[in-house]
């Protein structure tokens, strides 16, 4: 028996909106730790890892570890039917091939349930090794989204270079080139508006903008984004989910042939 009650149902709506275009089908794993997902995009270039810790749910019952295969497009369609203020409860019986999403309005005057068929998904689970990153960049998530969007109108790839002076995002395309430099800026009114570069070891990596733009669909989940970079390994783009966990996107770099 599985029963997960999430008072801030909008979080789950936002999570689905942020990953449904990157990943088609995925297994959601439920254990005593929480509700999690790990999945690659169809071209196996990016990986998404989601964790919603059990403590973040108002009620969390998971009698045994289970994995539920879902089509994320269909799940997003169902969650779109929940109001932004609704409480969302996920329910599944042992051995059942369906999951039920129950939506309760805050005043309890409307209760809806949507049942969705589960799928058998043969997914490969990857172990993500601990890495020491050369540079960790924390910046407003909206600013990062803006940079990715702007640069993708000029070129297809971005070179992210970190130096002691700051971080530079560069692209080039048929019509010209573009560079955006962000300097460390901690003298702001609100901490979420700061740009912080931790451990600024020089590092320069190239990534496909298409994927970074897709990751920025998670912007509504968090005011800040943390970007961890190290030479020749995937970048991690992390959006923390308040009080509950995180959504992390890993993207393999492009290498000069």
């Amino acid at each position: 028996m599985l029963e997960l009650r999430l008072v801030q149902g909008s979080l789950l709506k936002k999570v689905l909106e942020s990953i449904k275009d990157l990943v088609n089908d995925a297994n959601f794993d439920c254990s005593a730790t929480g509700f999690s997902l790990q999945a690659m995009d169809s071209s196996h270039v990016a990986l998404v890892a989601l964790l919603l810790r059990s403590e973040g749910f108002e009620h969390y019952r998971c009698d045994r570890n289970i994995s539920m295969g879902m089509n994320l497009g269909n799940m997003a369609k169902m969650l779109k039917c929940a109001g932004n203020d609704d409480i969302i409860t996920l329910k599944a019986d042992d051995g059942s091939d369906t999951v039920t999403f129950m939506f309760e309005s805050p005043t309890q005057d409307k209760i809806a349930d949507f049942e969705m068929r589960l799928m058998d998904i043969d997914s490969e689970h990857l172990g993500i090794p601990e890495a020491e990153y050369h540079a960790i960049l924390i910046m407003p998530s909206a600013e990062f989204a803006r940079i990715c969007k702007d640069l993708s109108s000029i070129g297809d790839t971005v070179v992210i270079s970190v130096t002691k002076e700051g971080v530079k995002f560069s692209t080039r395309g048929d019509i010209g080139t573009a560079n955006v430099v962000c300097r460390q800026n901690t003298t702001v009114d609100k901490p979420e508006e700061a740009t912080v570069i931790e451990m600024p070891e020089p590092v320069s990596l190239t990534f496909a903008l298409r994927y970074l733009n897709s990751f920025t669909k998670a912007t509504p989940l968090s005011n800040t984004v943390t970007i961890s970079l190290s030479s020749e390994i995937p970048v991690v783009v992390e959006y923390k989910i308040a009080e509950m966990g995180y959504i992390r996107f890993y993207l393999a770099p492009k290498i000069e042939e």
């Binding site: 995937p234 890993y250 492009k254």
Partner: peptide, 14 residues
């Protein structure tokens, strides 16, 4: 030209 790496080249399967 740049070659796009796959994510599984960096992470351990299983």
């Amino acid at each position: 030209p740049c070659l796009q790496r796959k994510i599984a080249e960096y992470f351990i399967s299983g």
